[in-house]
């Protein structure tokens, strides 16, 4: 839970970063797009039932790591992008405590049940 809370905050930070660190252009557009996506996915993953959504932030985090090589970034923007990206990709692997049970969860929908072969 705490990991996805931090990831949510990183998403919100990305939305504000172009204004705070004073960068514009493609780097700012990238922050303005990935920020809300990251924050949304992490906020959905806050809940135990949808905790698996956290993995969606792995590709987004990796994208933030390579973005400065693809799009023009000034130094502060590049450092911020790589740092946020590494943090997000890592945090996605922290499952956190899941106390509740959900009848086998989402995987149960894909699993073949005994009744079908009988």
């Amino acid at each position: 839970m705490w990991s996805q809370f931090i990831a949510t905050l990183i998403g919100i930070w990305l939305m504000a970063a172009p204004a705070v660190l004073e960068y514009a252009g493609a780097a700012a557009d990238n922050s303005h797009i990935t920020g809300p996506l990251v924050a949304t996915l992490a906020a959905v993953a806050l809940w135990e039932c949808t905790r698996g959504v956290r993995f969606a932030n792995v590709p987004l985090g990796l994208w933030l790591v390579i973005a400065p090589m693809v799009l023009e970034h000034e130094t502060p923007a590049a450092v911020n992008s790589v740092a946020c990206g590494l943090a997000l990709a890592s945090l996605a692997f922290v499952r956190g405590r899941v106390k509740r049970s959900f009848g086998g969860g989402w995987a149960a929908l894909l699993r073949h049940q005994a009744g079908k072969t009988a």
Binding site: A39, A43, T50, F102, G103, G104, L109
Partner: peptide, 27 residues
């Protein structure tokens, strides 16, 4: 937007319970 995002997570568990029920029926 914050409100609509906060609604997604808590709404999904009920959906999962319904889908599991429908899957049991279908099986």
């Amino acid at each position: 937007a914050v409100i609509s995002v906060l609604m997604i997570g808590p709404a999904m568990d009920e959906v999962l319970a319904t889908l599991q029920y429908l899957k049991r029926i279908h099986t």
